[in-house]
Computed example of a mutant assay.
Amino acid sequence: MIGAHQPPAELTIPESLPLSQLIAPLVAAEDALARMDERLRTSRIREGFISRLHYADACASMWLEGELVSLEDLVLHDAAADVRAPTPQLARARTVLRTRRIISDQPPGRALERGGLALLSGKPAADKEFATEMYRHGSRSADTDETGLDDALSALDEVLSRTGRVLSGENIETPPSPALTPTEDLRRMADSLEHLPPLLAAGLLWDRWEAHPPASGRAWLGRQLVADYLRARGKAAAHLPAINSGLRAVPWEHRRARDGGARLRAWLEAAQAGALAGLREHDRLVAALATLERKSSGRRVTSRLQDLVELAAAHPLLTAATVAQALGITQRAARNLVAELGLRETTGRGRYRVWML
Score class of each variant (00 low, 15 high):
19 L>V: 14
319 T>I: 09
304 R>F: 01
59 C>P: 03
168 S>W: 04
13 I>V: 14
238 A>C: 11
226 V>S: 02
169 G>K: 05
180 L>M: 12
94 R>L: 11
182 P>H: 14
194 E>Q: 12
207 D>H: 12
250 V>T: 08
241 P>R: 12
208 R>C: 01
291 T>E: 15
149 L>V: 10
265 R>P: 01
57 D>H: 06
195 H>V: 14
149 L>S: 11
248 R>M: 10
319 T>W: 09
281 E>Q: 14
318 L>K: 09
293 E>V: 06
284 R>W: 14
176 P>I: 10
129 E>Q: 14
85 A>C: 07
338 V>T: 00
309 V>D: 00
209 W>H: 10
287 A>R: 08
251 P>M: 07
67 E>C: 11
223 R>W: 04
265 R>L: 11
209 W>N: 10
314 A>V: 05
215 A>L: 13
88 P>S: 08
146 E>N: 07
17 L>K: 07
340 E>G: 02
28 A>Q: 11
55 Y>K: 02
100 R>V: 03
126 A>V: 12
19 L>I: 14
117 L>S: 02
57 D>R: 06
262 A>N: 06
160 L>T: 02
152 A>F: 05
5 H>D: 02
350 G>L: 09
27 V>S: 10
298 G>R: 15
60 A>R: 08
321 A>W: 05
99 T>C: 15
18 P>Q: 15
293 E>G: 02
349 R>L: 15
93 A>T: 12
233 R>F: 09
283 D>T: 14
120 L>Y: 01
100 R>E: 04
48 G>M: 06
116 G>Q: 05
335 R>S: 06
32 A>M: 03
293 E>T: 10
230 L>T: 04
282 H>E: 14
343 L>C: 04
1 M>Y: 13
61 S>H: 07
40 L>Q: 09
212 H>Q: 13
226 V>I: 06
162 R>H: 04
159 V>P: 03
117 L>H: 00
205 L>Q: 07
133 E>I: 05
91 A>Y: 01
98 R>D: 13
201 A>K: 15
265 R>N: 07
89 Q>G: 05
349 R>K: 15
117 L>C: 04
276 L>Q: 13
348 G>C: 09
333 A>Y: 05
53 L>S: 10
74 L>H: 02
257 A>F: 03
262 A>T: 11
176 P>M: 13
82 D>I: 15
174 T>C: 05
173 E>S: 10
13 I>F: 03
108 P>I: 08
86 P>W: 14
195 H>L: 11
148 G>Y: 00
44 R>T: 15
66 G>P: 08
311 L>N: 05
17 L>Q: 11
242 A>I: 10
289 L>M: 14
193 L>D: 14
279 L>T: 09
13 I>Q: 04
46 R>H: 06
129 E>C: 09
31 D>I: 04
109 G>V: 06
217 G>F: 09
199 L>F: 12
138 G>H: 06
151 D>Q: 15
11 L>E: 05
132 T>M: 05
296 S>W: 10
33 L>M: 12
157 D>A: 10
348 G>F: 06
115 G>P: 09
111 A>W: 00
193 L>P: 12
155 A>N: 00
196 L>D: 04
119 L>M: 02
186 L>G: 02
217 G>V: 09
187 R>G: 00
341 L>G: 11
22 L>N: 05
187 R>I: 02
213 P>A: 08
56 A>L: 12
16 S>M: 04
231 R>G: 00
316 P>N: 03
170 E>S: 01
208 R>W: 13
